[in-house]
Design a protein around this nucleic acid. Structure first.
Lengths: 206, 206
DNA sequence: CGCATAGTTGACTACGCTCAACCCTGGTGG
DNA sequence: CCACCAGGGTTGAGCGTAGTCAACTATGCG
């Protein structure tokens, strides 16, 4: 499950004073690839999409960052953002100015530990994402993704709070293919759909 | 480029005493997914492949870890390895026992900083990998990968020290498709091949 | 009651995978 | 020195499946 960390960890006072809150409306850009990286962010509410543009203009979605997770860790070791961050829905984020955060990390071991833990979790999430992409058959990829969500939330019922086409994009599928994959899974009895909700019928092994 | 960090950082004496060196022959397993995670590793020489097995038995290669980079960071926050690590070629690794490493991180801020930097770099590498996978056309994916290598090594000439089929697998392509992609790129004049070496002819604009 | 948008379904296309044959190299042994 | 073999790499043919374009439906909102 998504764990909060810097949002609820007791921040040292000098860092708490330095942070800034941003409110973003759906579609608004937080930062662009290549811009000077001045801060590290944590999502409070909403959802922030990390993406890059390929040479041919396609967009690549790395992940959708949920509340409690961080983004732009790269600010700490580089002076440029390595991807673009856009709010998928109305969102709010906390900005930790680079220099203040580094100073605080030097001083507060507890803060450092939760920061490291967050990095490692983010790493694992990316691995899972990559694993999904290696499943070629669309319906199997979708099923694996649903199983993943089931594990995360500990409930067999999944309800998406965003358009299916966004979910499709996150899985690297065209909306049509995603739709067909769901239909097929339903026909095969592996999932059940009912007014926007999705049951996963299989045992959630692996 | 791949940066050494824990290998060359001056290790605190108590940590240096706790580390173990392992030598692996090609194909040997370092650890398996699900095993009790007792250590974090850094590759000294050779190359370690991180992979998972999907439900259908397919293998997913997350990345090939090069000398100087770390693996199994998850040991620090979990008690199970989340993937399997196998030596692609004869390799040697340094093992940092979990508890000793955590203790050392608590005590030595410099060590902590290079550790954090490594995590962030690893994160970025994964992003790049994911970005590649989103390029559908095989020849474009290959070209992007070659450009990436050019940037990393700062030389337009690429020479692989492993079978092409392994490279193909890392890109998520069948060996035949990879071969055809290279042929096509060569015909289009975007690369030049000469006895195992590959020139990238384009300007290396990101 | 339209209008816009998301989701679904159908038809067609394109491209990567699979299987198979062939080539080329390096190593081995006569 | 050549014959043979094994493995990786290349090339060819056919298939399957995801993408694309298009039409249709359903839903929500003015």
């Amino acid at each position: 499950m998504v764990m909060d960390f810097l949002t609820i960890v007791d921040l040292p006072p000098e860092l708490r004073q330095a942070v800034t809150h941003y409110s973003l409306t759906a579609g608004q850009t937080l930062f662009q690839e290549g811009e000077v990286a001045s801060a590290f962010f944590v999502v409070e509410t909403g959802r922030i999409r990390l993406m890059r543009y390929t040479a041919e203009g396609r967009t690549v979605i790395f992940q959708s960052v949920e509340p409690g997770a961080g983004l732009a860790e790269v600010a700490l070791i580089s002076d440029q953002y390595s991807c673009t961050a856009i709010a998928e829905v109305d969102s709010s984020v906390i900005a930790y100015p680079k220099s203040n955060l580094i100073a605080a990390l030097r001083q507060y071991p507890t803060l450092t530990e939760s920061f490291i833990a967050m990095l490692i979790r983010s790493n694992e999430a990316m691995r899972t994402h990559l694993e999904l992409r290696d499943i070629r058959a669309a319906h199997e990829r979708v099923l694996q993704y649903l199983r993943h969500l089931v594990r995360l939330n500990n409930r067999r019922i999944i309800q998406f709070d965003r358009p299916m086409k966004d979910v499709a994009a996150e899985l690297g599928l065209a909306p049509e293919t995603f739709s067909r994959a769901l239909s097929r899974l339903e026909q095969e009895g592996r999932i059940t759909r009912l007014s926007g909700e999705i049951w996963v019928n299989e045992s959630s092994a692996a």
